[in-house]
Design a protein around this nucleic acid. Structure first.
Lengths: 190, 190
DNA sequence: CGCGACGTTGATTTGCCTCAACGATTGTGG
DNA sequence: CCACAATCGTTGAGGCAAATCAACGTCGCG
């Protein structure tokens, strides 16, 4: 039984051992090698994933083939192409392992069944989504009111662990910068 | 009884007349004149608001006194300082009426009670929040991969009604632009 | 070793900002 | 009803942050 994810949920809602057991039974373990894809554009996205171990990024390619990282995820985070997952659309994003990963997948259909049987899981996901929603609002405000250096500093404060594990050019990309620009910013900060 | 909001909810979940009644009973009607504030920084934010009529913006002021519009809302949208609302923090945002408004407020405490009595409302808000979450991810992708002109065009497509009702400088601000820049973009588009 | 991936540095360009000025429109008080 | 101010959109000139383009050093690895 995956202990991490149960603790993760118990931070938000109470869970009997029985309920934890039932939740555990719908999880699908998945391992992924670094540089391989969890999701690619066009895929049907029937699962969202909890990260037990490793590091991943979600990104899209624009019309000019430029990559744009929308999200990263490390231990205790969730990742997927959420738009595709929630709206039953084909994926637009790549989700790629940056390190070797251990994941727990949840099928959308299992989730729907679970919500009906044990409504408090609906509560859990409402609260998780709400937090993610608020975090995105904060990110948008940052992009509106901060310049490159400030955004980088904020990133380092918010995600010190991620900053150490991702290569420079991924961080730059996430911040909407070119690697050269981030390099100059880091130089300036020393 | 406020018919609009019940229809709004019935687009997402089934609702008996009894349940609709109960929901209606916790709503608080609020009217607001144009240019007045629904929320100001420091306020305790105990409500989120459904817009029956009118148009509002949510914005913050940065350290230099510059305004940054995070969200607007017209009929059938929700608005608040959601970070403050969900996390019981003092407001950081202004929420200001751009036009005369009619709103329906829901107290957080009423909502919690409602969720316990009728869990399907938890479902409704989970789904609404999920949609909002996905929309913000799209907005972030746009800010990463599009230039000013493309973002403006996307805005016009997504929110044609809003585009007509907000003054130029509010739209510019929402897009992270100066009014002068938006003016030049519009000129170029003709 | 030799190659590719990554980070860095320099030179130049560019998209948008800043500052300033000026019509057009709206609102207001005499 | 007009004079005046305030608000808003527009235009021009100049500046700056970050992008772009190009080159190079370093490191890890087949």
């Amino acid at each position: 039984m995956p202990i991490e994810i149960i603790q993760h949920i118990r931070k938000v809602i109470d869970l009997s051992d029985q309920e934890a057991e039932e939740f555990g039974s719908i999880l699908l373990e998945k391992k992924l090698k670094a540089k391989s894809y969890l999701i690619q554009p066009g895929d049907q996205v029937s699962e969202e994933f909890y990260v037990v171990k490793g590091c991943l990024i979600a990104y899209c390619l624009d019309d000019f083939g430029n990559k744009h990282i929308l999200q990263f995820a490390i231990e205790d985070w969730w990742i997927s192409d959420f738009e595709a997952f929630f709206n039953d659309l084909p994926a637009k994003l790549f989700v790629e392992a940056v390190e070797d990963c251990e994941l727990l997948g949840i099928q959308k259909s299992s989730l729907e069944t679970l919500f009906k049987r044990i409504p408090k899981f609906e509560r859990f996901f409402r609260i998780k989504t709400t937090n993610a929603f608020v975090a995105l609002r904060t990110r948008i405000l940052s992009s509106l009111q901060k310049n490159a250096k400030e955004r980088y500093l904020e990133f380092c404060e918010l995600y010190p662990d991620v900053e150490k594990r991702l290569p420079n050019y991924h961080i730059a990309n996430y911040l909407g910068l070119q690697p050269e620009s981030l390099s100059r910013i880091r130089k300036e900060l020393m």
